[in-house]
Amino acid sequence: VTVHVDGVEYDFDNPEEALKFAKKVAEDKNGTYEVHGNQIRVT
């Protein structure tokens, strides 16, 4: 699973970890996250 944040890609073997990371980053920057299959984009 790849999490995209501001043009940087973070790869996770564990989808739950990826989702947790995306949620935290989105909260920290008052943004949102979208899941597209095995890609998660934080905006």
Results as ranks from 00 to 15, higher is better:
T32F: 12
V8P: 00
K20T: 11
K24I: 07
E27M: 13
R41G: 03
K20N: 12
V42Y: 02
F21H: 02
P15R: 13
T43D: 08
Y33A: 03
H36N: 13
K20E: 13
V25R: 07
H4C: 15
K29M: 15
V42P: 02
V5G: 01
K23G: 04
E9Q: 14
P15I: 15
R41H: 15
E34I: 13
V35F: 08
K23M: 12
A22N: 01
I40H: 01
T43K: 12
F12W: 03
F12E: 00
G31W: 11
T2A: 05
Q39M: 12
E9F: 11
T2F: 06
D11T: 14
K29T: 14
T43H: 14
E17T: 08
N30F: 08
G37H: 05
D28Y: 12
F21N: 00
N30V: 05
K20G: 07
V3Q: 00
Y10Q: 03
N38L: 07
K24T: 09
A18T: 00
K24D: 06
A26R: 03
V5Y: 09
D28E: 14
E34G: 04
D11W: 15
E17N: 06
L19I: 11
P15V: 15
E34M: 09
I40M: 03
E27F: 13
F21M: 03
T43F: 15
T2I: 11
I40F: 04
E16Y: 10
T43L: 15
G31A: 09
D11A: 15
N30C: 14
L19C: 09
V3F: 02
A26P: 00
H4Q: 08
V1M: 14
K23Y: 05
R41T: 15
D11F: 15
E9T: 14
F12T: 00
N30K: 11
N30G: 14
T2L: 05
V5W: 07
A22P: 00
N14Q: 06
N30M: 09
T32I: 10
Q39L: 11
D28G: 10
G37Q: 06
T43M: 14
D13W: 09
V3I: 03
Q39P: 02
G31T: 07
F12M: 02
A26I: 06
E9K: 14
K20W: 10
V42S: 01
R41Q: 11
N38I: 04
Y33G: 01
L19G: 02
D28S: 13
V1K: 04
Y33E: 01
A22R: 02
I40R: 01
V5S: 04
V1R: 05
E16V: 10
T2V: 12
E17D: 13
H36I: 14
D13E: 11
A26D: 01
E27G: 10
K20A: 14
E16F: 09
R41D: 06
N38Q: 07
G37N: 06
E9P: 10
E27I: 11
V42D: 01
V8R: 12
E17K: 06
V35G: 03
N30I: 04
I40D: 01
D13N: 10
V35R: 08
D6G: 08
F12Y: 04
H36P: 01
A26H: 02
K29A: 10
H4Y: 14
F12S: 00
E9N: 10
Y10K: 03
Q39S: 11
E17S: 09
K24A: 11
L19V: 07
P15N: 08
N38K: 06
T32L: 08
V25A: 12
K23F: 05
K24S: 10
Y33H: 03
E34V: 13
P15K: 13
V3P: 01
Y33S: 02
H36V: 14
R41I: 15
F21D: 00
K29S: 12
D11G: 13
D28F: 12
K20V: 10
N38S: 09
E16C: 14
T2H: 06
T2K: 10
V3R: 01
E17G: 04
E17V: 06
Y33V: 13
T32K: 11
V25D: 02
V1Y: 15
E34L: 09
P15Q: 13
H4R: 08
G7A: 05
H4K: 07
A22M: 02
V8K: 12
G31E: 04
F12I: 02
V42I: 12
R41K: 13
T32E: 07
F21P: 00
A26F: 03
V25I: 13
H36C: 13
G7E: 05
T43E: 10
A22H: 00
A22G: 02
I40K: 01
D13R: 09
A22W: 02
G31F: 06
E34Q: 10
V5M: 06
V35A: 05
E9G: 10
K23W: 05
V1D: 02
Y33R: 01
H36E: 13
T2Y: 07
K29F: 15
V35M: 09
G31L: 08
H36K: 12
I40L: 04
T2G: 03
K24N: 07
V35T: 06
E16H: 09
R41F: 15
V3E: 00
A26W: 03
K20F: 10
E27W: 12
G7P: 02
F12D: 00
V35P: 03
N30S: 08
G37D: 07
D6R: 05
K24E: 09
E27V: 09
D28V: 10
D6Q: 06
V5E: 02
D6V: 03
K29W: 15
A18M: 00
D11L: 15
G37T: 04
T2D: 01
V8G: 05
N38P: 04
V35L: 08
D13A: 12
G37E: 07
V8S: 07
E16G: 07
A18Q: 01
V25W: 11
P15L: 15
T32D: 06
P15T: 11
G7H: 05
D13Q: 11
V1N: 05
P15H: 14
E9Y: 11
H4A: 07
V8T: 09
D6F: 09
V3M: 02
E9M: 14
A18Y: 01
V42L: 05
V35W: 13
Y33D: 01
H4G: 03
N30E: 07
G37P: 04
G7F: 05
V42F: 05
V25N: 05
K23C: 09
D11V: 15
I40C: 04
N38A: 06
V5F: 09
V42R: 01
P15A: 14
F21E: 00
V35C: 12
Y10I: 06
K23S: 07
E34N: 07
E16R: 07
Y10D: 01
V8Y: 10
F12R: 00
E17P: 03
N14A: 06
A18E: 00
N14D: 14
E9I: 15
V5N: 03
H4N: 09
L19M: 09
V8F: 11
D28N: 09
N30R: 10
D13V: 10
K23N: 05
V35E: 04
N30Y: 07
V5K: 02
Y33M: 07
R41M: 15
N14S: 12
G7W: 04
R41S: 10
K20D: 11
A18S: 02
V25G: 03
L19H: 05
E9A: 14
F21S: 00
V5R: 02
A22S: 03
A18G: 09
Y10V: 05
N14R: 08
V25P: 00
N38F: 06
T2W: 06
E34R: 08
K23Q: 13
V25M: 14
F21I: 00
H4T: 12
K20Y: 11
N38D: 08
K29Y: 15
N30Q: 10
D28H: 10
K29Q: 11
D6K: 04
V8I: 13
N14K: 07
Y10T: 03
G31K: 04
E16P: 03
E16Q: 10
V5T: 04
D13M: 09
G7M: 05
E34W: 11
D28T: 10
D6L: 07
P15D: 08
V8A: 09
G7K: 04
A18R: 01
P15C: 14
R41C: 14
H4P: 01
G31P: 01
A18W: 02
N14L: 07
G31S: 06
E34S: 11
D11P: 14
K24M: 11
D6P: 02
N38Y: 05
T32G: 08
K23I: 12
E17H: 05
I40A: 01
G37L: 06
A22Q: 00
L19S: 03
E16T: 09
D6S: 06
E16W: 11
V25C: 14
K24G: 07
T32W: 14
K23V: 09
T43R: 12
G37Y: 05
G7L: 04
V3K: 01
E34P: 01
Y33P: 02
L19R: 05
E17F: 05
V1S: 06
V3N: 01
R41V: 15
E9C: 14
E16K: 08
Y33K: 01
V42K: 01
V3H: 00
N14F: 06
E9V: 15
D11S: 15
D11R: 15
D13Y: 07
Y10A: 02
